[in-house]
Design a binder for these strands. Sequence first.
DNA 1: CCGTATCCACCTGGATACTG
DNA 2: CAGTATCCAGGTGGATACGG
Lengths: 134, 134
Amino acid sequence: MKPENTRVPVLPPSPAQHEGCRGVASVLARVGDKWSVFVIMMLFDGPKRFNEIKRLIDGISQRMLTLTLRGLERDGLVTRTVFPTIPPRVDYELTDLGRGLSQPVMALGEWAKNHQIEIETARARFDGRREAAE
Amino acid sequence: MKPENTRVPVLPPSPAQHEGCRGVASVLARVGDKWSVFVIMMLFDGPKRFNEIKRLIDGISQRMLTLTLRGLERDGLVTRTVFPTIPPRVDYELTDLGRGLSQPVMALGEWAKNHQIEIETARARFDGRREAAE
DNA sequence: CCGTATCCACCTGGATACTG
DNA sequence: CAGTATCCAGGTGGATACGG
């Protein structure tokens, strides 16, 4: 995984139709990759070790946690500090940038929590109506 | 596409470790699916027709727009109104719920636009350092 | 115009095993 | 403990063609 593997909708030939949607997409790709947001939330209240995060999220594979953390590190959202002790110890911490991003992300999370029921209801209704039309 | 195909990290055995992350995940899955956010943003300033949206986003395939709109409709975020004219005409519009969601989404978009450069810089630095270690 | 259906390349992400 | 490597199933999304 190196450069711009996150292929993203560039809204191509039309120039600046809604102002800088290109950059939005690249961040949204981060937010949307299933694990990044969880990691960000876990790191919100201070630095944590690798396995600590792994335990907290639980369900994430070692591989995915590594990839996610690397991605966040690459984007300058978290720092990785290695303590050359035995056994090795690695701390991950949100950068200022990461803490900044966590604000709107948390807001989104809040909204999600508060409207979760409405969405589930809407889904049930939608699926119900589809079934009625079998 | 019907029920809960959006498989989501449930943070399984540990109960309520950070309060309702389950619902967060399901919304984030919507937000993260590469196109939903764009559609939401396009619909922010009023209802639009199918091909109108398609033209605005441009890069999205007909199939993906259909799937995205269905998903948003299922979640109660947009309404779909069919005018039985010839040729047929279908309008999509944000619901109140959808407009509510668009707030934190827009906030996220704003943040993305404002910090796009920092992230790109961080990426370049990260990739550069990796290359130096070839 | 607004879709649905089909096919298929690619990517994501889990399981597992192995190193420093 | 903190990774890396490999393998592989399943999902995602583009292209294309066709239907109402």
